[in-house]
Amino acid sequence: MSSSKQSVLVFFTSQVWTNNQVLIAILGICSALAVTNRLSVAITMGISVSFVTAFSSFFVSLLRKYTPDNVRMITQLAIISVFVIVIDQFLRAFFFDISKVLSVFVGLIITNCIVMGRTEGMAKNVAPIPAFLDGLGAGTGYAIVLIIIGFFRELFGFGQLFGYQVIPLEWYASAENPEGYENFVLMVSPPAAFFLIGGLIYVFRKLQKTA
């Protein structure tokens, strides 16, 4: 009994580490770059994607024996869309500030390669529970990468974390202190995200080789 539990959990952990969707399979890049300006936004996105991937995988797997093959893709898209819309409506009702920042990127979770990758690659072949864990793991791996990137971008681009000023205001350049610290504004713009991910891929590969 314990061995089957072990093997089921492998679905989860492999997605987070050995097969991390962002750094190894290089999927889900689009949103990883665009919404990691601020940590709060990055975490919300990570949680949303985890939710969508996990539940879509679950339902696709549930329906896998009844889905005709020629409408397989559109069925997956439909199920994914339903969960994305659920998340979007929920955010707009209860987390309005964050939904303003995310705006259309919540909708873009539908085309997030990770979600489709998991439903097409795994969910239609395995039972619902492993599929759910697989999806959850993929989302978690994605969320972790997003948090790391968001951490660096917000810290160096704004001097803040979660909106709280971490780099003391006294350090900043001002009229009295022209040589003071200035925010590394490039961190907040697109190129920095590219550089960070490139660097992370490098680090991740090194860690995996030595692990």
Binding site: Y66, A78, Q89
Partner: peptide, 28 residues
Amino acid sequence: FIICLSFICALILSLLASALKEPQQNAM
């Protein structure tokens, strides 16, 4: 299959949207 799927999806979403409409407008 497709008709059933569309119907169920639309039903779920419509219910959710009408339930959340007021909180959304209040939030705005």
